[in-house]
């Protein structure tokens, strides 16, 4: 039996996002949420492993508001066996450390987990650090930027995408892998999966169920504080030229770049 946990985060949909031309701020409707795209890759990988090996169980875990149940149902529709939601007012304002503690506590409630997969980062916070922190709280090894997982009897061989190339690392279970987009094509919900998703009850764990102290939760349990949020100065003083069949725009560009000392 191979127990796989997939971590899925619900994030704002970005595909229909428009930018305010004046302020450069993202305009999006509040209802539009999706599973973090790299978590979809993680999910597809877990399901691929399940479909190509005997005795694999896939549990999807999410932390977020009640509406994140939608993401977990979607995960089950795509082939996960179970879903678990970590939710509660006390979790609000959690930074990556506080989030990692809560998720690690939920994973500890499951039977002997062998492999945990999640996206290398989420499209909203983009910190890319929660995965490694969860591994710390579980005291298991973590490999990041994983683009291939080879499941063996007692270990996994993980291919990492790094600067200028790839690395292959072998780690005995249990291990955590944070994956990038190269690992696979995300899957689709199946009819059978959709039916299962409808029937499945998703347990919701609050702080008490996870045995967490109030001081470890939400803003209180978060060492970092946001001081301010502001819009970046997006537009630059752009020099615009029109191609006119002559080399003039290109010649001017070379002069411009020489002046900037970048070539």
């Amino acid at each position: 039996m191979l127990n796989i946990v997939v971590l899925v985060k619900q994030v704002p949909g970005t595909d229909n996002v428009k930018m305010d031309p004046e302020t450069g701020v993202m305009i999006r409707s509040g209802k539009d949420t999706i599973i973090n795209p790299l978590d979809e890759n993680a999910l597809a990988e877990a399901i691929r492993i399940k479909n190509s090996h005997e005795n694999v169980k896939v549990t999807a875990i999410s932390m977020g508001p009640d509406s994140a149940i939608k993401a977990l149902k979607e995960a089950i529709a795509m082939g996960a066996d179970e879903g678990v939601l970590i939710s509660g007012r006390a979790f609000a304002g959690s930074d990556t450390i506080a989030t990692a503690k809560a998720i690690a506590a939920a994973i500890k409630k499951l039977d002997s987990v062998d492999l945990i997969v999640c996206g290398e980062r989420a499209t909203d916070g983009e910190t890319g650090q929660t995965g490694a922190m969860i591994a710390h709280y579980l005291d298991i090894p973590v490999e990041t930027y994983v683009s291939a997982i080879e499941v063996k009897e007692t270990s996994a061989i993980l291919k990492r995408t790094v600067e200028g190339g790839f690395e292959r690392i072998e780690v005995p279970y249990p291990v955590m892998a944070t994956v990038n987009k190269d690992i696979n094509e995300p899957g689709f919900p199946t009819l059978k999966g959709k039916l299962q998703a409808k029937q499945k009850t998703i347990p919701v764990y609050g702080p008490e169920a996870l045995g967490l102290e109030p001081a470890e939760l939400g803003l209180k349990g978060s060492p970092t504080r946001v001081v301010k949020v502001f819009s970046p100065k997006l537009s630059r003083d752009t020099i615009m030229k029109k191609a006119n069949g002559t080399t003039e725009p290109v010649d001017e560009l070379i002069k411009f770049l020489s002046g900037k000392d970048v070539i």
């Binding site: 930074d95 990556t96 450390i97 990692a100 983009e126 910190t127 890319g128 650090q129 929660t130 995965g131 490694a132 922190m133 591994a135 710390h136 709280y137 973590v142 990041t144 930027y145 990492r160 995408t161 790094v162 600067e163 978060s222 060492p223 970092t224």
Partner: peptide, 23 residues
């Protein structure tokens, strides 16, 4: 914020029980 830095820093941060800001 390389693949090495972004992997090792979260581990060091949680071991030292402090906060980390990425990238």
């Amino acid at each position: 914020a390389t693949t090495t830095g972004r992997t090792v820093m979260p581990l060091v941060t949680s071991k030292l029980e402090t906060g980390l800001t990425a990238d």
